[in-house]
């Protein structure tokens, strides 16, 4: 059985987990086994809705204390539930929580693990999955040698697939281990699309010359329904908040569309965005290295081009 860990934040199921479930369902289909979902904590959604993405069954350990991650507690629970259910493949989303617990769960299950996976396993000769390495600059095809396999898949690498399976929810009755950490404060970024979950991202660099010029970028993001991001020099100069910094040392993202405005495309920046499906670069320097990594490029003054692009997006919406 393939068991997919369903992650939540603020009692809402993460899109990355639905993608992990779609992926788990595809593996289950290939191996001719069932796919089941595991939810810890309380969530607002009706859990039978997980059937949409393929879950044949949902196992639910309903306990509010599990809503925020305690690696030790979550690891012990996931590992013992997986053991009880005889799961042979475990799938996690490679998001904040998934990357924190998946390797620990693998250790507890004596299972081989590959994180940062971006393809379905190849089972013609063993069980081989592909992962991104060297910050997206290459792929490694890795064989998992153990009977139980653990996979953490990169966000936005597989997509959502609808299966519309009928599903039942089973409550798990299990004692919750004592907490190992105590959450004392939560600071939320309100009203923004989280960067890691965004399909569309508009990003600005030093070429925008100062924080006062971000209006044109925000207008474009609003017209597209995109999240906003920035390069390292921009967040280092406090023009934009640190959580917007994408790149090697910031957040790594893989949206469907990444629009880079006034960013030259240093290798460290590309490491954070090179898994994007489509890259648009707007830069006045035709020699900017970013154009080499781009699908579409516009050479010119961002202050003229971006408002025109926004107008074109809005026009396309109404026609």
């Amino acid at each position: 059985m393939v068991l997919v860990y369903i992650d939540q934040a603020d009692q809402q199921i993460k899109k990355a987990s639905l993608e992990a479930l779609s992926y788990g369902a595809a593996i289950a289909q290939e191996l001719g086994i069932s796919v089941e979902a595991l939810v810890l904590g309380t969530v607002q959604e009706d859990l039978t809705s997980l059937g949409k993405y393929g879950a044949n069954k949902v196992h639910h350990l309903k306990n509010e204390s599990l809503n925020s991650l305690d690696v030790k507690v979550h690891t012990n629970l996931v590992a013992s539930i997986a053991k009880n259910l005889n799961a042979t493949v475990l799938v996690f989303a490679q998001n904040f929580n998934g990357r924190a617990i998946a390797p620990a769960v693998a250790v507890k299950l004596e299972a081989g693990i590959v994180t940062g996976v971006c393809s379905l396993p190849n089972t013609t000769n063993g069980f081989v999955v592909t992962k991104t390495v060297f910050s997206g600059k290459a792929f490694a095809h890795i064989k998992i040698e153990t009977p139980i396999k653990v996979i953490a898949i990169n966000q936005n690498s597989f997509g959502l697939v609808e299966y519309n399976a009928s599903t039942t929810v089973e409550n798990i009755d299990l004692a919750i281990p004592a907490p190992s950490i105590k959450i004392t404060k939560v600071e939320k970024i309100e009203g923004e699309i989280p960067l890691t979950e965004a399909n569309l991202v508009v990003s600005g660099g030093r070429g925008l010359k100062g924080p006062e010029n971000w209006g044109i970028l925000l207008d474009l993001a609003k017209a597209l329904g995109a999240a906003t991001a920035c390069s390292r020099p921009v967040s280092d100069s406090d023009w934009r908040p640190h959580h917007e910094h994408v790149g090697q040392t910031g957040i790594q993202i893989a949206p469907n569309l990444y629009i880079a405005i006034g960013i030259s495309g240093a290798i460290q920046h590309l490491a954070g965005v090179n898994r994007s499906k489509t890259i648009v670069v707007i830069n006045k320097d035709p020699e900017a290295p970013f154009f080499k990594a781009a699908d579409y490029g516009v050479v010119g003054d961002a202050f003229e081009i971006v408002p025109k692009l926004t107008a074109a997006v809005l026009k396309a919406k109404t026609t």
Binding site: A140, K143, K292, V298, K308, L309
Partner: peptide, 28 residues
Amino acid sequence: STSINHFDLPPAKSGVKLIDPENMDELV
């Protein structure tokens, strides 16, 4: 528990398509 089968590099980008800055409708 794992072993590397092989590595490969992502397919090269087919090259950037340059769009006329006056024609953002085309980019959209």
